[in-house]
Write a protein that binds this DNA or RNA. Structure first.
Lengths: 142, 142
DNA sequence: CTTGACCCTGTAGTCGCTACAGACCGTAGC
DNA sequence: GCTACGGTCTGTAGCGACTACAGGGTCAAG
């Protein structure tokens, strides 16, 4: 290991490992402005600190909750500006919750149809395949 | 209307309208080989028939069930080759059903967390925002 | 002083579309 | 015939959120 004196100067790979992010993802987040560009060593290597790690973890957790990068950006602005973030944050979360629920509804519809056709297909020895017939015959959906 | 003699020579826009597809999507499907290139008029305009319409509807319905274009391609091969498609089709559908269920599981996890934080945020007058604290403090997920 | 592991940058690819730009065609009105 | 307006044609670039190189620089150990 190169330089891992405590509390200063994480390299990108170390930051990625500690946060569970992919190396390239960290680079990407920096490129699109979600992470501030860290200071560099004399030879140009990035040197991250705890604040970067905290911020990256924030982004990753927001992503795990399905927030888009645009939404994450908005959340980070709320964090940085530190006014009364809760009302706006709550609004964002509620809107996103509605998105998530809409997606669940969509997927459940798909699940229902698929479950039915898989059951109808059985062991697959039928000459007329229920899946294929379904796709040809009717609107698969209402 | 240009030429809409019955059962022959749909133009692309008509095909799109009849199937509910977006015009550009039809073009895209042709480009990536999901739809066969139709015959052309003397001046180079596409002329679709009922078989194209049927095939496009098949693709669109499969997409509504969440199949990827690769999967749709595989389904179309089964249709075209007409051996014993049901076993393989059923396998594809079952695999896709598992994908769909995995996505539902993921989304439900997100929904649960979001529901909780939105409830905690209440009317948004709290000084410490539960959403932001959640994203900073703990792994938002198990 | 070489080897090998890491870091740097930039670019291209993924999926499933969507949206142009710029050229052609075809019909209706005058 | 002439023009205007819509439709069609092609190719290319953009989206979101990464992911995967290529081709170079740097650093420490042997």
């Amino acid at each position: 290991m190169r330089d891992q004196n405590p509390a200063k100067g994480l390299q990108r790979a170390e930051l990625a490992r500690r946060t569970g992010a992919n190396l390239e993802t960290v680079r990407y987040y920096e490129k699109v402005g979600l992470l501030p560009p860290p200071p560099r060593t004399a030879s140009g290597y990035r040197s991250y600190d705890r604040a970067h790690e905290r911020r990256l973890s924030f982004v990753l957790r927001a992503r795990e909750l399905g927030f888009s990068l645009e939404e994450v950006r908005a959340l980070l602005r709320l964090v940085d500006e530190r006014d009364q973030p809760c009302a706006e944050a709550s609004r964002l979360a509620a809107a996103h919750l509605a998105d998530v629920r809409a997606k669940i509804t969509d997927l459940r519809r798909m699940e229902g149809v698929l479950k039915t056709v898989v059951a109808q297909c059985g062991d697959g020895t039928r000459p007329d395949c229920p899946l294929i017939e379904t796709l040809f015959r009717e609107a698969a959906v209402e």
